[in-house]
Design a protein around this nucleic acid. Structure first.
Lengths: 236, 236
DNA sequence: TCAAAAGTGTTGACAGTACACCCATGA
DNA sequence: TCATGGGTGTACTGTCAACACTTTTGA
């Protein structure tokens, strides 16, 4: 591998291209991002996004998936998409490094083994971050917020099967405000995003009606609300 | 200037970063993109997007604006935004070049002086394009389509003042299907995106009621329809 | 006064929110 | 049978598309 990643420093002094990912999950009622703590200068001890140098033979998405494999089992990454390029000439001290930033999502039920120097942090209470990584995290959060509204991207945050209550907790955490379980089910069902599995789960220790299990009908990203206005004329 | 742009070839053999823009306008009832015809190999005579190498001291947006200044008067560019990174290792023959692609918009009323080797082409009938530039043009078109629906981005395609008929022609061209003048006015007015100037224009040669002039209330991009669903709870 | 173009009024479909109400279970 | 959480029925609201209708001009 000709390049070393940001964790071990950047031995090559040339201008370069790095890939970085804001990997998010909904957990314990809030939205968290995976960060690792830098072990050397610059920005010693500050918290940083996973990623590293783009290699010569890979495109940016292949690269970020490869680099994330060190931190999160790739099979648990349910969605990866480009966010934006961050390219301020002074964003990285001492050399020119252009970054392509990604949004990555991990479902709420898996708790992937992560290295010792990495930790999940609440997006609403970020620690001191390195470089321009805070902006990238906020861009990832904003993209997720928007896509929850007009796509089926919830599949990437939810387990394979779930109750509506669980899904409500996930959406509430991701959006940062309470979402109604009633309307969540209705909207997603009407759009054909959600379907019942037919099975139910036993009621909790405090009693109550046993909840039904649902799943997402597709686990690929689909736009479910393509035209808010100015739809093409109906040809009936 | 340490780098030469794609028009004159790439003399440096190192891996590099280029910026490219799909510059769009609505004209004569269709959506057009500005392309220039390559004067040498590779891809001699094929049509290509304006852009060039990223210089060491500029960020990608500064760079694309600088490079577009050669083709289009920058003051006529009413909107520029990042689209995506194109980074397939073989996208550029012979060397590694990562591209950051942009969407640029030009209003319908100005017909900027463009160099001899450049021409506006209908997006729906593209000529043979170089490299992966066709994909970039289509990404620009798709982004414009989407943003017309939930933002005020029409300001970037329209003149400073316009009649609803003119605006209807612009939206129809950009979207590729007929839009109703009635509903266009109503939706944009309700959202506070459009306002009457109070002045009217004399009727055309075939008679008819003289149309009123309108303008966009803002010439900065604003999201006018932020939450399709899952709005935050109303706090009344 | 008539044709043409601009703009308004009105209706209906539909999506989304809010909330009352019914359902199924454990204690 | 009661408390608890799950799920459904329904009314209300706002947005948009469709289209009839009115307004204002030139010939």
């Amino acid at each position: 591998m000709p390049h070393r990643n940001t964790r071990t420093g950047h031995p090559d002094q040339d201008a370069g291209h790095e890939v970085l990912a804001g990997v998010l999950r909904a957990h314990d009622g809030d939205l968290q991002v995976l960060l690792w703590q830098r072990a050397q200068e610059p920005h010693l001890d500050r918290w940083s996004l996973p990623g590293g140098r783009l290699a010569a033979t890979e495109d940016v998405e292949t690269s970020i998936r490869r680099q994330l494999a060190e931190k999160v089992d790739v099979h648990k990454l349910t969605h990866v998409e480009q966010l934006a390029v961050f390219s301020a000439p002074d964003r990285f001290p001492g050399q020119r490094v252009v970054a392509t930033a990604f949004l990555g999502l991990v479902p709420a039920d898996v708790d992937p083994e992560v290295p010792d120097d990495t930790r999940w942090h609440s997006v609403s209470a970020l620690p001191g971050t390195a470089f321009d990584h805070e902006r990238i995290v906020l861009a990832a959060r904003d993209r997720l917020h928007a896509k929850l509204s007009y796509t089926n991207i919830g599949f990437a945050l939810a387990p394979a099967e779930f109750t509506i209550s669980e899904l409500r907790r996930i959406y509430s955490a991701a959006l940062g405000y309470q979402v109604s379980a009633t309307n969540l089910q209705r909207v997603l069902s009407r759009r054909g995003v959600l379907e019942p599995t037919g099975r139910t789960v036993s009621a909790g220790p405090t009693g109550g009606r046993p909840p039904a299990l649902f799943r997402f009908t597709s686990r690929d990203l689909q736009v479910t609300d393509p035209f808010a206005v100015f739809r093409p004329p109906s040809q009936d």
